[in-house]
Amino acid sequence: MKRYLSTILYGLLSIIFVAGARFGLINAYEQIVIMFIGINIILCSSLNLINGYMGEFSCGHAGFMAVGAYVTSILNIWFFTSSPVFGGPLFSPGSAIFLFPITLIAGGAAAALAGMLVAIPSVRTRGDYLAIITLAVNYIVKSSIENIQVIGGARGFMGMGKVVDSMTSVINLPWVMIWIFFFTAVCIWILNHFVNSTYGKGVIAVRDDEIAAEIMSVNTNRMKMVAFTLSSGLAGIAGGLFAHVLGYINPGSFTIMKSTEIMVMVYLGGMGSLSGSVLSAVSFTLLMEILRPLQVYKWVLIPLLLIILMLYRPEGIMGNRELTDVFPKLRRYFPSREL
């Protein structure tokens, strides 16, 4: 029982927040902050797989997020609402309540596919070239969306609010928040199992010594493809959730700036540490909100803080260790993985 304490705590926490949102104990702004924390956890931990565990340098995570956001949003608008572009709803609007996770996963799958396409050329190239490829892909995705007028082009795409409304009209619950809690847990579960399996540790072997990995029978190209596909797929799901928190997306939400923000979270938490990613996503999101009154100065202060942090603790909050490595006693509250 004790082993599942962490899981139970997370479940309780989710229920408290969902109930709080349902009964108006948490105001709309606080709800959005909570939901952004979840989304940032997904984004940060998924990028950590590439930049931290695999030691490559991907700086276009927002591009994959955009793919997921747009695909999920378009599917939802097409399926569940009447819009000038897609006509009437394909399914009854109320069915969104159980089809929503499926469209989310579809968005994730589209992003994963995009990630796989990027991984193919980058398997041949090394190190810093992946930075360029992902950077260029980020621009290409943003620029492509801007040029497709059907989905709003540079003006953006809206109407996801209606989808959310049709879900709440069936059962009055904060559905987007529920799905964020759910997918955050799924994301951490997947990544945790992946990087702790001998199979997934192939990714870490690639980071430590790629030549040794390849010669010691690790199919390094496949590992890179898997890691990249998984990471971008999760970013896609985060994108889909992000679109439904705001109810509106435009290409400007998925710029290099957004990618930079995610990268900052990864490095703040520590490369190759999942608990670090979670901690840093929570603290970074909160910090951004606390510093909001500073307006422009926020974006001077935060980078400065990070530069100073780098000088005194270059490995981030956790380095490549997990919380359970630092406090071994915590281990008894997490599901066992002893083999």
Partner: peptide, 18 residues
Amino acid sequence: RLWNSMTVLENLCISQHY
């Protein structure tokens, strides 16, 4: 060329990848 961020045991596990 060992994988230095992983333990001795893990080093011997990963080489069984195939």
